[in-house]
Design a protein around this nucleic acid. Structure first.
Lengths: 337, 337
DNA sequence: GTGAAAGCGCTAACAC
DNA sequence: GTGTTAGCGCTTTCAC
């Protein structure tokens, strides 16, 4: 049913080699022949068989993506959007590497080789979730998003989490907040660790105490934000500001505060992270740290492509800047606080 | 670098044909040889080249998925989770068909043929978003999620939206609500249309008036729920209950109500749709209509597989039942209402 | 039971 | 410029 190169060779009255050359834009074909071949191919709705192509050692133009199923967080959707953009731009297709790969006996790398996957994107994992050493050592190009991985042909991309949170602390300190709490992300995740580090550094820079009871563990979700804030509010001396590791958890925190009868930002300032849609629509609108999630996806694909094609790469570690977004959930600390 | 069938033939001291047969479980191979071949293949970490396989006319075990980039709604993530499950179970890989396919000159079908995609899953679209006729007539098996499409080798899967909303109206009517409003989903979407139909039917069944000012258009998002509810609250005579076409928009509606000084469920009953995580965590917890999103994904793949393999299929249209979930956002209408 | 050989659609030497 | 041909890794007749 599908038309192949021989069909169009016959129809155009040339050999298959000529067709191949014409189709691939080789200069050793006369303009007239090229045009004829291209026209016939178009008429017959020819499309090259990708399997045959990659079999003869050509590129498969296929990238793999390996991610957690827990992609309900809007962060993942945004990153995926950026990936999609870049895929179009660079002409790749994307194959989802299903979680089969997490079974013990199964080898992600073998699966990729089997499918002629040229490179793989990994995200949504913690370094400890599984053993990525086989992948890293395999020579298969890989780019990790928000994971601290390095190797010969591996790249990583993340936001400048440390700087972002340091800035947040500074802004809050300038608003005279001294009792600043921190609702963490998943402590085992790279982003979670970096943000916590930024918090400690920021507090130290302003001579503020990093009280253990003011640091509570979350996991980026709304529920964890709600639970963490509840804990914070039961403290004998409450914080006047709280930095959350995601907008979603910040929304949860604000809910808890509201239930407790506190108003934001008068009684409590709240800072989020990500700048998802909800940050704009929630009341009060959330002051947050914007990370460019689309860019993370886009740049990840671009970096992977460079790793595959052997292009010159200034750095295999890309750290994207973040942006502080003022909205309504932060205000000055009260005089007596 | 990757080991091929010839390498393992040599190592096992047999011919390539025998290796192929052993690997594919043909009975014409002696148990001894089979075992030896299998062992050697394992030792050498052999993995068949998918391209070569599909080239010789074997199946590619590849499905395509074609979806909107606007997959930020948690609904999509859940469906994807179910798809992933089924993929594992049936041994398929999934290739993500980028939006290149939406360009005019580009043919989704050709792309699939080119990639040896055996069948395609489509979701997140409205029937009018693009012309799916080429796909439907191509003979390439396809399953549409929440889209009303039919054809020789096409299936569709959806929830029983009409019944779901009729039930919601009935529950509300039993709580003595008479002024019931409806915040729609995207009016052009299949789910949106069916839910609206369910609303009209339900209202008619209980002799309740379907006032135009009580039906306001939304698009499933939180923002649209907020905006729609605001409109409703400005009416001279407010509704006592509102049915929303998604949990997310219901949350937006509740926010608007809260700002307006109304309390849920005392002053206003709110019903959602989907039963996403937020429905449980929001305060008051949302009474909603649960649709089994994972099952939608899972069954879609199963149906597609059946369409591909030519298995006996009772029906190419699958309508999944929904479940009414009582939580705290619905209560009886006040006496005087 | 096992092996030799053809061929899937394509590209890349290498002739002409 | 164009055509002939080998061969990518695999499955599948068809001999033996």
């Amino acid at each position: 049913m599908p038309v192949n190169i021989r069909d169009i060779a016959r129809a155009a009255g040339v050999s298959v080699a000529t067709v191949s050359k014409a189709l691939n834009g080789y200069s050793t074909v006369s303009a007239a022949t090229r045009e004829k071949v291209l026209r016939v191919a178009e008429e017959m709705r020819y499309h090259p068989n990708a399997a045959a192509r990659s079999l003869v050692g050509q590129r498969s133009m296929t990238l793999g993506v390996f991610l957690t199923t827990g992609l309900k967080h809007p962060f993942f959707a945004s990153v995926l959007g950026g990936i999609d953009e870049a895929l179009k731009a660079r002409g790749y297709d994307l194959i989802y590497l299903t979680q089969v790969a997490m079974l013990q006996e199964y080898s992600l790398v073998r699966h990729c080789r089997s499918r002629n996957v040229e490179g793989v994107l990994v995200f949504g994992f913690q370094e400890t979730d599984m053993d990525f050493s086989e992948l890293i050592e395999s020579g298969l190009p890989a780019v990790f998003i928000d994971m601290d991985m390095a190797g010969e042909r591996v790249g990583m991309i993340t936001s400048d989490n440390v700087q972002a949170i340091r800035t947040a602390v500074r802004r809050l300190a300038l608003l005279n907040h001294r009792r600043i709490a921190f609702i963490s992300g998943i402590p085992g995740s790279y982003a979670g660790k970096m943000r916590y580090e930024g918090f400690r550094e920021g507090m130290a820079e302003h001579g503020l105490p990093c009280l253990p009871e003011y640091t509570v563990i979350g996991d980026f979700t709304r529920e964890s934000g709600y639970a963490a804030m509840t804990k914070l509010l039961e403290l004998p001396v409450r914080p006047t500001a709280v930095i959350c590791c995601s907008d979603v958890s910040a929304v949860g925190a604000m809910e808890a505060a509201a239930e407790y009868g506190l108003s934001v930002p008068e009684d409590l300032s709240v800072v989020g992270f990500d700048d998802v849609e909800a940050a704009r629509s929630v009341r009060p609108a959330l002051t947050t740290i914007r990370q460019d999630m689309e860019a993370m996806g886009y740049r990840a694909v671009a970096l992977l492509d460079d790793l595959i094609t052997g292009a010159d790469i200034p750095s295999k570690q890309i750290i994207l800047p973040t942006e502080w977004i003022w909205r309504d959930s932060c205000g000055p600390a009260k005089r007596d606080d």
